[in-house]
Design a binder for these strands. Sequence first.
RNA 1: GCCGAUGUAGCUCAGAGGUAGAGCGUUUCCUUGGUAAGGAAGAGGUCACGGGUUCAAUUCCCGUCAUUGGCUCCA
Length: 649
Amino acid sequence: MNINISLPDGKVIKAQQGTCALEIAKTISEGLARNILSASVNNEDWDINRPINQDCCLKLHTFNDIEGKKCFWHSSAHLMAEALEYLYPGIKLGIGPAIDNGFYYDVDLGDDRKISSDDFPKIEEKMLSLAREKNSFNRKEINKQEAINYFKQKGDEYKIELLDDLIDGDITFYTQGNFTDLCKGPHIDNTGRIKAIKLLNIAGAYWRGDESRKQMTRIYGVSFQKQKELTAHLEMLEEAKKRDHRKIGKEMELFTFSKKVGQGLPLWLPKGAQLREKLENFLKKAQENAGYLPVITPHIGNKDLYVCSGHYEKYGEDSFQPIKTPQENEEFFLKPMNCPHHCEVYKSKQYSYKDLPVRFAEFGTVYRYEQSGELHGLTRVRGFTQDDAHLFVRPDQVKEEFINVIDLVLYVFRALSFKDFKVQISLRDKENKSKYIGSEENWEKAEQDIIDATKEKNLNTVIEYGEAAFYGPKLDFMVKDALGREWQLGTIQVDYSLPERFELEYTGKDNNKHRPVMIHRAPFGSMERFVAVLIEHCGGNFPLWLSPEQFIILPISEKFHDYAEKVKQLLKNYDICGPIDKRAETTSRKIRDAEVSKIPFIIVVGEREEAEEKITVRKHGGKNIGNIPTNEFIEIVKKEMRELINFTN
RNA sequence: GCCGAUGUAGCUCAGAGGUAGAGCGUUUCCUUGGUAAGGAAGAGGUCACGGGUUCAAUUCCCGUCAUUGGCUCCA
């Protein structure tokens, strides 16, 4: 009997009932048949050799697709489990999924055994030798009792616990070689596809993420079809290590931490502070143009403020403890958010519907007691500055304001060369609308407004249901950095809760009081986190307009120090700054050091330059601009700066 | 917060039960230089902190603190 198989391009293939994705791939091209790893049949994951018995939509996945990669890595996790069972008989297995960049498996080695990274080579070797056996992955539907019996006999209580949550009739085993695992699949056709393996690290992980339960050993790895791909991946990891903002921050003297000052409290060094100030001034200017009003609010607030905002109830116990005063019962808290203060700013006067939107902006420093194990460089700290603003708008203005904020965020991203990003729209959980505050009508409208705004701006969006905060839907910007890693940066959030709690009002056309909608937004997110991401994105080679120093002057010898000073002063008049390297070193040496320090322009001055009143300019990276008058250099610098920050959307 | 690893000079790191080493940087001197490391000499360390074992601990053991890989969390 024939069935119809439709492909994503609309083509329909007639095939024998019981055919499989691999067969279909063969009819399309030999190359595809060689590379196909998994498939989906009517959007259900499907092994490539699993029979297809009815009309369906078929998608074929190779390593270039997320689905293909995940399938490949998931199969690699099974392969690792097989190797581990061989090398460590009697181990118990937890879960072993594919992740964004590889796979892991959680294992319980028993009390007296340990694995360290020193053991990786022998595990990798065993995996490769098992892979070379080209064992096929065999899928088997199994009833629940049989499955439980299997793991009982094997002595693996973890799998039995997993089985508890599964419905009989929906349970499958996969077997390759001597290894059988409870698994939904899909898997690659045989282990022979796995040609290059690297185990990366090892860590403890609680069974089911519950710290009251057994801690298992989690082994992370990555695998590829070709050695070359593995090498490239490892090189990327090396590059990421080189760009680590903690390392570059130290090398370039941007920021530091001090045990004495306290964990997670960054100290911005002069160069880092210069960089950050430039970013802040840049955004301040953009916000001024977009109609924001500056406000400044204190670093602490009375307990009552946070009781009113609801933050006290939710976070009071788990955060920095209150500051007491000589007054009985008076308590202040370090501010964990700027919004309560901004609400009070709003309340300082009356608004008509014609006054809205009102936009209050502040680089507000906040303090949150993050768990000590969570602190990480500048990306996760206990004291940080948000590029915060709160927009108080009428419900009918939500969409327009979203568009305005999106424009601002796009402007920021473009100025900083973040070219690749997507936005996530977080909406209510459709099933459980009761857990959200605010009227059905407002939510409905705001959600639609956000969707429409992103459509209008032609953004690449993903919608996540159930990811909205209890107080409103939101839009998050995730940028991809130069190494392809994703970071969540800017955010725009609608809030119905705070206007309610603070009883914010404006007078409408109807002369009645109305409640404004509040929009929180931060294009950078926090200065700390943003600078960290920026450092890793550009590897410390900041865009010229942000670089703490734009040039370094290298006098050929001591005789030209005066001329160097003169050039430096001249450039300073145009806000182009940098030092003079007056060390008694050779020019080659000074060039090398300047290159290593990532300074954008190197200016060499010697006899020729002084005589002709010129400078010789070399760009970071080795490109010679040549012997030019200083004015010409100023023009070059100004032009390069303008290119990134002066444009209209 | 939990589990593992780490903590030696400003930085990157080696080292061993018997009072500490390299490279880079820094200082001084020589060299006055033309596009990715010129030469020489010197300074610099309670080996994170607190206990214990030992004739002797920076090294072994325990605790604390910090960093770090994860887990959990993230207004």
